[in-house]
């Protein structure tokens, strides 16, 4: 199993007294897209945000079990969470460009790492915007505010910003849920491109999207990982009745 990049073992998560995740065991394969699906409140977003410890900033939370990134327990005491987040990037549901120029948005992650070399920044910004399929639309206005971009462009800018620090894993929390169909299609096409170089974990409410883009699908229900397998199998021949009911739209 050399191609497994990240595994969780009996991973539980608590918001105060409320248990949001119950002993989740999941393997994430390298250079594949793993989709997390399930009804609202099932814990899929909590799980996603646990993989780069973004839940740390919420007071009163705690974890049990392990999340191992290439053999490193990311919740161990000696782990530098800043380093972890550079390896595990994240794109949020609502695009969140900073009120800076397009260039400064993409260069942000590099600059906080101390990169000052102008030509390195210029090169990396261009690469990242190309990887995010946004370069052609913005190459002539890199010094304009990122807030002037359209919604779909803003989300691709956020993807470019995450790519600029060269993470190994890209976590995406419903990246297309606020976009129109055409912008959604662009993001989905982008995912196919990206999985050649990145491992992607994506939360989605959209069943067709999960079926279209992902290689593996994990179905969460009430904090538990109910079913996990190849997307093809989960969608055509689910092992559990509850999974079938959810993906066919009988509940959730």
């Amino acid at each position: 199993m050399d191609n497994i990049l990240l595994i969780t073992r009996d991973f539980s998560f608590y918001y105060g007294p409320v248990q949001a995740l119950k002993a989740v065991n999941l393997d994430i394969e390298k250079f594949k897209i793993t989709a997390l699906i399930g009804p609202s409140g099932c814990g899929k977003s909590t799980f996603l945000r646990s993989l780069n410890r973004m839940n740390d900033i919420i007071p009163g939370t705690r974890v049990e079990g392990k999340v191992m990134l290439e053999g490193m327990d990311i919740y161990a005491k000696d782990v530098d969470v800043v380093d972890l987040r550079r390896r595990v990037g994240m794109v949020f549901q609502k695009s969140n460009p900073f009120p800076k120029t397009i260039f400064d948005n993409v260069a942000y992650g590099l600059r906080i790492q101390g990169e000052r070399n102008r030509s390195v920044l210029i090169q990396r910004v261009e690469e990242s915007l190309k990887d995010a399929a946004l370069w052609d639309e913005v190459k002539d206005r890199l010094d304009q505010s990122a807030l002037d971009l359209s919604g779909g462009q803003q989300q691709r800018l956020c993807i470019a910003r995450a790519l600029a620090v060269r993470p190994e894993i890209l976590l995406m929390d419903e990246p297309a849920s606020a976009l129109d169909p055409i912008a959604t299609q662009k993001v989905e096409e982008l995912l196919f491109q990206l999985k050649q170089d990145y491992t992607i974990v994506i939360v989605t409410h959209n069943m067709q999207q999960a079926a279209r883009v992902s290689d593996y699908t994990a179905f969460f229900y009430m904090g538990e990982l109910v079913e996990f397998g190849q997307t093809q199998q989960v969608f055509t021949d689910p092992k559990l009745k509850r999974t079938e009911e959810y993906i066919t739209g009988r509940f959730g």
Binding site: M54, M90, N96, G109, I112, Q113, V165
Partner: peptide
Amino acid sequence: PRSYREGALALGATPWQ
């Protein structure tokens, strides 16, 4: 907005950065 903070932290910024 909280998203400015989360966005920066997710890119590997320290809290002070």
